[in-house]
């Protein structure tokens, strides 16, 4: 059942991705917004099934399913879709799906090729902190992932406006100010979540090892991420730095997030490594 649900969710996300890519290449303005509703509908079904598959796995494992690469990728994708739907509800930027769904699909695809068995939890991880700490971290990083998408949308639209060649997606993309606003909002959501994740992680570490901070690679890279987004917020509030630079920084920030997520697990030794 778990497998079926997961595969089904993957299939729906795949369909949504195909539609979203067609959307990008079709260009021109939305004629009747029908396509973006289809996209939302299919992605929505995928999300519901995905949620069910995570709950199933939660029940089977007895803890939040984020303890293997398979689980983590899938859960990360789930968080991104959650935030995407929240933004869609709030801002109704139909074309956003075209920038988010491919990302979700790639995460789900990489999750699908990784080993799926549920392994017993090592004693160190058996703590209520596991759910709190990881959930905060995943949700925060998902906000950064969507901010990355809107950052790219911003750069595309800004390029059209500056070059004065208003082709392709110009009509479909919202105003750059809307994109900057969404981007900023996402960072103001992601940043406190990341901060809380780092704090809860430190508290958890203290309860297990008696020390708050061990300079574990994941800790270090999370701190780098934290500084990047802190910088985005800081310069926006003080110098009013906004627009293009903020968009570029939010793209750079997410690349660091990705490295923290995948790179650390694959390349470096870390207590955060999945077994």
């Amino acid at each position: 059942m778990r497998t079926i649900l997961f595969e089904l969710a993957l299939t729906f996300y795949f369909a949504a991705t195909i539609i979203s890519i067609i959307e990008i290449f079709k260009g021109g303005p939305n004629i009747n917004k029908k396509e973006s509703r289809v996209l939302l509908f299919i992605a929505g079904i995928g999300f519901v099934i995905h949620t069910a598959s995570i709950i199933y796995r939660y029940a089977a494992a007895g803890h939040l399913p984020i303890t293997s690469m398979h689980e983590a990728s899938s859960f990360f994708a789930w968080c991104i879709v959650l935030i995407f739907f929240f933004l869609e509800y709030r801002y109704r930027v139909g074309i956003m799906g075209s920038f988010i769904m491919p990302m979700v699909f790639i995460l789900m695809l990489s999750s699908s090729v990784l080993p799926r068995e549920i392994r017993p939890l090592s004693p160190v991880l058996q703590s209520y902190w596991l759910g709190i700490h990881t959930f905060l971290a995943f949700l925060g990083n998902a906000a950064f992932a969507v901010a990355f998408g809107t950052g790219i949308m911003y750069l595309v639209q800004e390029h059209y406006l500056k070059s004065k060649h208003l082709g392709g997606l110009f009509q479909r993309l919202p105003s750059i100010q809307t994109l900057a606003e969404i981007n900023y909002r996402l960072i103001t959501i992601g940043f406190p979540l990341l901060t809380l994740a780092i704090i809860t992680g430190a508290l958890w570490a203290e309860s297990v090892w008696g020390t708050y901070w061990r300079w574990d690679p994941k800790e270090v890279w999370s701190l780098i991420t934290w500084f990047i987004y802190a910088l985005v917020l800081h310069i926006r509030l003080t110098a009013g730095w906004r627009g293009k630079r903020a968009a570029i920084l939010s793209i750079a920030g997410f690349i660091v997030v990705l490295f923290t997520f995948f790179g650390v697990n694959l390349l470096l030794k870390s207590i955060h490594r999945f077994p």
């Binding site: 639209q157 059209y160 105003s175 750059i176 606003e181």
Partner: peptide, 8 residues
């Protein structure tokens, strides 16, 4: 049209 693509 352009103004609408710059401002919210």
């Amino acid at each position: 049209e352009l103004a609408k693509k710059i401002f919210i």
